[in-house]
Every structure is written in C-alpha cells, then in structure tokens.
Amino acid sequence: MSSSAILRQPEDSMPATAIAAAGPEPIARPPSFGTLALRWYRLNRSGLRAIAIGVTSLLAFLLVWHLLTTYRVVFFVRFTNVPSPLAVYASFTKAIHDPKFLLHIVLSCRRILIGFSLAAIIGVPLGLIMGRFKLIHEIIFPVAEVLRPIPAIAWVPMAIMLWPTNEQSIVFITFLGSFFPILVNTLHGMTLVDPVLVRAAQCLGARERSIFREVYFPASLPHIFTGLTVGMGVAWVSLIAAEMISGQYGIGYFTWEAYSLVQYADIALGMIAIGVLGLGSSLLIRGAGQLVMPWRAK
C-alpha cells in the first residue's frame, strides 16, 4: 500500500499544476494531445498494469520451462524427456501446415459446438421450466441429482453401447459434461428471482407468459451465463477424455497418439492447443453474455 502511494504522488501533482496554470485563462481550449494521453493513462492504469504483469508472468513461465528442460532437471519430477519450448514451437510451425492437425482441431471444435449447443438448448429451458413449475421440478430433480455426480468419462462405455457411431458417442459425452452445470445454474437463477419484481409485473398487467419472458428469464440470465461458462469448461474436459479413449480424430486423440508415437513435442503442442481452445471458447461466452446483458456492463 505505502509503495503505491509513493508511486502515485508525482503523477498526481502533475495535473494539479496544469490546472493552476490554466486557471487564469478565460477561454477553454481543447486539451493538448499530451494531456489526453496522460488522462487516458490515468483512467486505464489498472488495466495496463494487469496486462504488463500478465505478459511478464507468461514470459517467466516460458523461461522456467526452458531452463528446466535445457538442463534436464530431475528433482522428484523428471524433465529428462519433457520437450523444450523451442522444440514445441518447431512442431507447432510444422503442424500449422499439416492438414491433419487442422482436421483434429476442427473436429474437436465441431464436437464441442454440437454437444455444448444441445446442452444449452435443452438445459436452459428445462431449468427455467423446472424453476417455474413445482411438479416438473419434483419429477425431474431426483433423477438429475442421481445422474449429475457421474463424471462424463464414466459414461464412455455406456455411450459406446448407446450410440451407433463413435462420433455420436463422443458428442454425447460432451453434451453430458456441459448439461448438468447449465441445468443446475439456470435452476439456481430461477430460485433467486426477486418475488417483488414478479408482483410489480403482475400489477402492471403482465400474465404468466409475459412474466416468464420479461421477468424470470432476464432475471436468471446472469446465472444462466455462469452455467454456460462452467458447462463449456466441463465440455472440454469431457471431450478430451472421450477422444483419448475412443477417438480416431480430435485434439485429445492427437495428444494421446503423440505419446504412443514417442513424439514428445506434440504432447505439449496438443496440451497447449487444448488450453488455447478452452480459453477462446470461454471468452466467446463471456462476450455473448455482455452483449445479452448490457445492464450489467460496468
């Protein structure tokens, strides 16, 4: 705390002198570029700081990785066979021109898209309806509670029996992984809807259907998006597990295959690709959330 206060001091004193100098001047002039840049900097200081620290920390991670693999450190964990960042970069430049690698990525993304979309299309309305109608809640909730703790990966053998093709069973696993977080969070959002808002809508003439659309749904949206974000994370976890076990394509299969073929750099490449894809998809959901809920923008 004290160090930041000291750091701030010289910057704070600068605009003070600027105001004092501009004081006697009667006509307001447009602020100079320097003033604007300074203001922009002051307003965005915490954001810039976060970016600077974030980049530094990523670079430090790469450096530590580089050192550990270059010197083949063995200290409880063994870095003897772990590929170095440079080796991974080399296999990345090779893979980016390899249509097969791109196919792995495209197929994984397609499975996520289908499985996750189905989970959202079924999970959100089901959660809304369960939150509104007690009987439906009472019927479905016990079943959901029993199925929910079963990890998606435990469904793999069952999924293979259930679905005629491998592709369908992998999509099914992905669907299951994201379905329950979406359902549970939507339901939770419904239970938290302020009953006074419902009453306010009623005495403005709103009927059941309008109340559902105009009150319950928007009031639950923040929790629905929490469910979608969590669901997307679990979708990737489930997808990779399913691909490793029963796939012939997909980034999870690619990573496992690299291990079998003793291509260690590709293992790390596959892992990083999964990380980047997971990050990208949760950013997409966050962006969608901000579009759909402008009132929550800070």
């Binding site: 302020d194 006074v196 808002l197 009453r199 306010a200 809508a201 009623q202 005495c203 403005l204 003439g205 105009e214 009150v215 928007p218 009031a219 949206l221 809920m293 009132w295």
Partner: peptide, 19 residues
C-alpha cells in the same frame, strides 16, 4: 387478483434492472 387497474409502488423500488 392483481391488475393494471390498481397501480402499485413498492418500498424497494422494484424496477426491472434489465430494462
């Protein structure tokens, strides 16, 4: 039952935050 014939104002304002 509630109706638009009887307007109501609540202590907690109860405006729709999303509107």
């Amino acid at each position: 039952g509630p109706s638009a014939e009887r307007g109501m104002v609540f202590q907690q304002y109860s405006l729709f935050p999303w509107k």
